[in-house]
């Protein structure tokens, strides 16, 4: 189905410096499923999403957004469709008031002031920072600053939303909050792509997982299928989720993704 091709990569190559290729010919499609990109440090994950945003341009090959080659679009044009929360919030935040920061993106892509204000308020509410709207982002801790960065992108209301390591510095509550934000965005028809090193979070939240390794895709499938492949994950410096590991060591053939799943299974069996 063509309308499922939100983003399509064709023989995508990229190098920062000649002779040191970071992405080595990626061919794949991003569809509507919520998708996690996982892989070793330095595998090329952040580089890849910067290419989607047009912040970097392919050395060769192409990226198509809803059928159009993004080589023909400026960063500003792309920003209307593809939003990205940076790995380091300091790369993103520069205003002195949280509300100004969150309204900046929406205004920049041409939203009317009143609409931008409304979107910003909603986004801050969603990430639980409504009370901090008047604060200076620089006075906030890393966890809150990351949430400001997330709200800023959500407020832009783009079709595609990319999170680069959204759970850095988040406590239990913060992680659960981000899970619910991702599920809500997915439900609203957004395409959510998330780079993340927390396998338990991936297992609980995403429909699809793509494993990057040394500039190639090593695995791509439903989260359950991907987390079944212990050996390949190891090769990519990854691990199975904690509950998956436990059940494997207990000798179960089934792949359990969450503690709830396993507990329910056990309780049903005990009856």
């Amino acid at each position: 189905m063509d309308n499922n091709k939100i983003l399509e990569m064709k023989a995508l190559h990229f190098s920062y410096t000649e002779g040191d290729e970071i992405l080595k010919g990626l061919d794949f499609v991003i569809d509507e499923r919520s998708t996690a990109i996982i892989g070793q440090n330095g595998a090329g994950k952040t580089t890849f999403v910067k290419l989607l945003k047009g912040l970097l341009r392919p050395t060769s090959g192409s990226i198509h957004f809803e059928g159009n080659d993004i080589a023909n679009m400026t960063v500003a044009q792309l920003a209307k469709h593809i939003g990205m929360v940076f790995q380091n919030p300091n790369d993103q935040i520069f205003k002195n008031r949280v509300i100004d920061e969150v309204m900046f993106g929406p205004l920049k892509i041409g939203m009317a002031e009143s609409v931008a204000k409304q979107k910003a308020d909603e986004a801050l509410e969603l990430v639980g920072l409504k009370d901090l709207a008047e604060k200076n982002p620089y006075d906030l801790g890393l966890s809150s600053r990351k949430l400001v960065a997330i709200a800023s992108i959500i407020a832009m209301d783009t079709k595609v939303i990319i999170f680069d390591e959204p759970t850095i510095a988040q406590d239990y509550h913060g992680k659960e909050l981000i899970k619910s934000v991702i599920r809500k965005l997915r439900f609203e028809g957004k395409t959510v792509i998330t780079i993340i090193h927390d396998m338990d979070f991936v297992a609980d939240t995403f429909e699809r997982a793509i494993v990057f390794a040394k500039g190639n895709i090593l695995l791509d499938g439903t989260t359950r299928d991907v987390f079944a492949k212990e050996d390949i994950l190891k090769e990519a410096y990854l691990e199975q989720p904690n509950v998956t590991k436990l059940c494997q060591s207990l000798g179960y053939d089934e792949v359990f993704l969450t503690t709830e799943e396993f507990i329910t299974y056990q309780k049903a069996k005990a009856k």
Binding site: G39, Q40, N41, A43, Q87, E165, I168, A169, H197, M199, K234, Y237, L238, E239
Partner: peptide, 13 residues
């Protein structure tokens, strides 16, 4: 202080 928040799972271990 949260030194491994951005490390891949094996690197963290």
């Amino acid at each position: 202080d949260e030194p491994t928040s951005q490390l891949d799972p094996q690197g963290r271990e």
